[in-house]
Every structure is written in structure tokens, then in C-alpha cells.
Write a protein that binds this DNA or RNA. Sequence first.
DNA 1: CATGAATGAGAGTTCATTCAT
DNA 2: GATGAATGAACTCTCATTCAT
Lengths: 203, 203, 203, 203
Amino acid sequence: MTIEDRKEREKRELKELILKTAADMFRKQGYESTSMRAIAKAIDYSPGTIYRYFKDKDELMFEISTTGFRIFYQYLSEVRKIEDPMERLQVLGRQYLLFAKDHPAYYDLMFIMPDPLKSLEEGEHWEDGHQSHGVLVEVIQECMKNGHFQGHDPIVLSLMIWGQVHGMVALQIRCRLEMYTGKDQNELLQDALNSFNHIISNV
Amino acid sequence: MTIEDRKEREKRELKELILKTAADMFRKQGYESTSMRAIAKAIDYSPGTIYRYFKDKDELMFEISTTGFRIFYQYLSEVRKIEDPMERLQVLGRQYLLFAKDHPAYYDLMFIMPDPLKSLEEGEHWEDGHQSHGVLVEVIQECMKNGHFQGHDPIVLSLMIWGQVHGMVALQIRCRLEMYTGKDQNELLQDALNSFNHIISNV
Amino acid sequence: MTIEDRKEREKRELKELILKTAADMFRKQGYESTSMRAIAKAIDYSPGTIYRYFKDKDELMFEISTTGFRIFYQYLSEVRKIEDPMERLQVLGRQYLLFAKDHPAYYDLMFIMPDPLKSLEEGEHWEDGHQSHGVLVEVIQECMKNGHFQGHDPIVLSLMIWGQVHGMVALQIRCRLEMYTGKDQNELLQDALNSFNHIISNV
Amino acid sequence: MTIEDRKEREKRELKELILKTAADMFRKQGYESTSMRAIAKAIDYSPGTIYRYFKDKDELMFEISTTGFRIFYQYLSEVRKIEDPMERLQVLGRQYLLFAKDHPAYYDLMFIMPDPLKSLEEGEHWEDGHQSHGVLVEVIQECMKNGHFQGHDPIVLSLMIWGQVHGMVALQIRCRLEMYTGKDQNELLQDALNSFNHIISNV
DNA sequence: CATGAATGAGAGTTCATTCAT
DNA sequence: GATGAATGAACTCTCATTCAT
């Protein structure tokens, strides 16, 4: 049993190693410019080995995304323990930024890279995505129950707020913030989020 | 004369046709996945012809970007005529969305796609980019002179606001808004922008 | 008439310009690596123009060769005026080296580059070649009449002597003499020829 | 073990097959005119396979050259066992001709084809080249010690003698001996070399 | 289970050559 | 007569993928 267990574990570990390595390389050089051979070399395995764990390059990409969404959901779930909905909303934003900072490769794949087509027919990995979005909508609705955002539509608001954080993160990840010199970019994003939070907190 | 004129015009038109076609294909399939051959085929010319107009694939990409930034700046410049800075800021956002809607291919290239690295030597085409950003910062500063956004930093605010519109546009362009069904996406973005504008208008 | 004359002359001059330019470029970069476009550009004409004067690249090559052989024959004919056959033979060698030094591009094409195939079927340009070879054989035979080279075959000797000068020239033109540092290569070749002449002069 | 051994051997054999095939084709059609595709086809492999054994076309060329120089040096080293320097010099010439006859493709690459430029950084493969040249100079110096070639410079003589054999070989390899009909070309070269040897043997 | 040699398609790019103007 | 835009084939090289071992 123990032997089988170990084998199973090693298999899982190798799969995760591939996922992590590929995610990094995809992010750093782009999907197309990252060759399977290069991934294999990076983890000191032969190209063929990757195909034991993933049908093809697309599936590899797809599973990275799935993994990313799982982790993402964990980050967002942290806010559960906060009682006040308005505060929860604000922390939600911070957690969003934190995830992007901790896992830029996943973030890029999940929200920026061209969707690997199959997402439509498969859609599985969007479950976590939808749940995450649900967390946001839920918080907004509770805020509204408490008297905030009167006259606004919660769905529209969710897009507005999501767009806010996604926009900043996407600009950073895709290196479009060079004109903001003189301050650490992560700090800058935090400040901007704080400004945003401050502004909406009185509405 | 007329003959030469016509030739000149045809040449310019072909160049623009290549630019437009390439921009579309880059957007739809990504830079790496779009082959020169495919672009040539799409406009019914031989591969070699493209090289009469562009040194290589990078230059083609670069010129698309340059063109995009020029048009972008024109869209934003529309707000010049608006006197009230707060109103100007809000229209600026609408123009931003309008550009993205009219020219999603350019938008994608300019703000979402991986920078084609040469950005260092390039810098040129970012002039329009910087100018455009300047327009935003300027408006914000005038708003602050009129008493708005007290206690906020204009630079930080500019990132916050840019992030706001970019985020929504980027999510749409990269097809991450499927969960928002039941309403036209462009309308949705407008609504979200209106919500944002409404909220900041009292600050 | 004068107008036609001028046109005729200009035409001839342009043809010669093409020949000379192409010969230089072929020599410097090789036949394959020299593009018709590049030749055209070097003489400030359009690619199409070259095709008015030469059917294709091969014919251009071929005519360079023909021209080269004509000039070559003129160099060798200089020895005619020398009475003593043994002295004539020695000057023949010097003229050979002189031609190679004055026209390395032609030399390369004529004696080193891969024969452009068609020479077999056409053979025209070898007329001058054969005549030149005839000059050598003739001189040798006269030397033998005067008692030199007894016991040798004139044909075999002609190859031996031709090989001698060709070998040195070919090594120089194809840059295989780098190990001979410290002395001007042309001088070195002259010295080696002198040694050769000195040695055979007593036979 | 045997399995790995066989694999290793097959790999080495394939590499040598590529080298040999490429050398032949380079010689027959020139370096530029020989495509990697064509080489691959000639050995019934896909183009990509060649790249498993050689980084690029230049490296392929380079290794051919290196191999050639190694073999060449072996041919020349045969003369070591001959005591009398004058006889050694003459056999050296015969070995030179023998190498050219046995390996015309290598000879062409090594001494006739345009240097693939990289010669500066290369230098490595010229070690055998220089050693080979050293053999020649050494023999000449020993001949001079024995009273031959008085009044001549050994370096100059080395060029003269090298030029002699190279010239004949180069003319043959590059098909410039068509006018010598009626006798086998290899015999002819031998005869010419004999004439040369006979003439210098009394000096 | 892992290897890595091999494939064959396709990438970007260049070229000799043609032909409407 | 000269132009130069256009062609289409060919180039070197890389890639995702397969499969015998």
C-alpha cells in the first residue's frame, strides 16, 4: 500500500510541478512562445512525459486555469469571516489584489490570456469562477440592504467594481504602468484601491 | 500626374488594408498564432508582398500600435471642448469606451497584448500614449482645483480611474463577461461607467 | 545618327556596368548570396532592367566569364614580343599573376567557381580559354626545341606549370594563406613564382 | 547494455551519414545551393532530424571541415616513416593528391569553397590545418639541411610547392581540365607531379 | 512509466523572375 | 527602355506530437 501511495503522491507532485512550471513560462513568454520541449527541459523530463499527464498543450493550459480558479476562490473566501458587508467588500478588493500579486501567472491565464476556446463547451473550471463572482454580488447586495448604493443595480455594480480591480491588475501584469515611476507598483495599486474604497464607502 | 497619384493612393490603401487586416487577426488569434502567410491570404496577396510594406512582423505590429495610439488620442481629444472639468472627466470615460468599442483590435494590441519587447527602443509610439495619459491627469487636477477629490493624490486617482475603464473593456475584449447574460455588453459597460461617474460626481 | 549612336553607347556602357558590378559582388559574397535585386540596387537601376540585358542570372554569370576570358587572353598575349622562349615562359607566369591581381573577381569566376553547367553545351567562352592554354603549350614546345625539359611531355608540363600558378592564386583568392603572415601576399606570390622560375630555368 | 550500445552506434552512424551526404552535396552543388531539406531527403529523413545532430547549417559545414582536416592530416602523416627528406617531400605530394582523389568533397570544402566566415572564432579546426602545413615546411627545411634548394627561402618554397599540388587538384575538382582529353585525369595529375618531382630533385 | 529520436506541418523570410504601366 | 509591385517557390529552422524501446 505504502508503495502505491508513494507512487500516487509522486504522480500528483509531478503533475503539479508541470502545471506550475508551465504557468510561469506561459506568463513570462506567452502561450505560443512556450514550447512543450522547453517546459519538459525546465523540469528535467522528456517531452513525452508531459503527454502522460496532459492530452495536449491546450489541456495543460486548461488545467492551469482550473487550478488557478480554485486557489482564487480560496483567497476570496477569506472575507467570509468579516461581518460588516461594506468592510467585507473592501477587503474583497484587497484579497483580489493579493491573489494577483501572489499568482500573476495564474491571474494572467485566468483573466487576460485569450480563452483557450474550449472553455465554452467545457465550462467546468468556470464553476469556481462563477462562485467567486457570486461572492462579489452577494456582498454588494448585503451592502445595499444596509442602505448603500441606493439607486444602483447590483449586477452593474459588480461589473463596475470587478472592472476596477481587474483593470489595475491587468495594466500592471501586462506592463502598461511604466509611466508611473517613482513608486512601487504594488503600493500604487493598494493606494488606488484605497482611494476607490474611500470614495464608495460614503455612497 | 494622375497616374502617379493613383499609384500612390493604391499603395497607401494597400498598406492600410494590411494594417487593418493584421490588427483584426492579431486580436482574434493572437500575435504568435497569426502567420504572415495567413495575413497575406486574407487580403489575397502573396506573402512576399507584405514585406514590401513592412520590414518584418514586428514592424507590422509596431505600426499597428502607432496607428492605434494616434486614433486613440483623437478620441480623447474630443473632450477638449467641454468646459466643466468634472463633466469633462466623465465624457473622457465615455470616449475611452467608445474607442474600445470602435477599435477593439487596436485596443487589444495597445493595452492588453504582451508588449513586443522592443518597447525600449520604441518609445516613439508611446508619445501619444503619454499624451493621452496626460489628458486624464490634467482633467483630474482641474477637478481638484474645483474642490473635488480632496485628500486624494491625482496620480493615484488617475490609475484608479484608468483602471476602472480599462478593466471593464479588457474583460469584455477578452471574453470574460459571459456570466453577464441578458443584457447587451456594450450597454452594460455604459451602465457601469454611469454608476462610476455618478458615484465620483459627489466627491 | 548621333542620337542613336549615343543610345547604343549608353546601352553598351550599362551592360558593362552590370557585368563589372555583378562580377565584384559574386566574388565578394558568392554567386548564390548575391541577389539580382542587390545588383540592381548597387547600380541604381530596377531589378527588371537587368533582365533587358541578360536572360537570367546564369546568363549574366556566363557573360562575365566570357568577358573575363577576353581580358585574360590580352594579358597573356603581352608575351608575344619576347623572343627567348624560356624568358617568355617566365613572363607568362608573371602576366598570369598580374591578371589575377588586377581582376580577382573575373579570375574567381573563370577558374574557381563552380562552372555554371551550361558551359558544356555552349562552350563559346572557352574559345579564348583554349587559345590562352595554347599560348602556354606553344611556349613550352619552343623551350623544348631549345633543349629544355628533355624527357618531359609538353602537355603534362603545361598542366604542371598551369597548376603551379593557379594553385597559388586560388589559395590567395579563397583566403587560404592566413598562415603566411608578415609579408604582403602579392609579394609572396611573386617570390614563389620567382623560385619556381629559377628552378625550371636550369632544366 | 547492448541495447544502449546499439543506439549509440546508430546515432553515430546517422551523424556520419549526414556528414558524408552533406559533404558530397555541398561539393556538387555548392554550399548555398544545397538545402537542408535536400540533404534530409537524400538520406530519407525529415528536415528536423538533421537539427538533432547539428545546431544549424553552419555547424554542419564546420564539422565536415573539421573531419576533413583530421583525415587530411592522417594522409600526410604517412610520410613520417620515410627517412630521406627529399623522398619524403615527393611522397608528401603523392599523399596530397591521394587525399584529394579519395575525398574530393572534403578537399573542396577545406581549400576551395569560400570560407564560411566564422573562421575567426573557429580557428580550432585550423589546428590540423596548421600542423599539416608544418609537416611541409619541416620537410623542406630538412631538404635544405641536406644541401637542397640553396638560396631559396623555406617559407616561399612551401607556398610554391603547396600551390603546385593545390593548383592541379583544384583545377580538376572544379572541372577546368576538359581540354586535357585522351588521358585519365588522375594519371595526368600523377604524371605532372612526377615531372615536378623530377625537376626539383636535382635542385 | 519515461525516454528521446523522428516526424511533418508550418513558421518568417528572401529570391529570381514577370509584367502592367 | 525602365520601373517596381507582385508572385510563388524555396529557404532555414522550430514545433506539437507520436511511438518504439
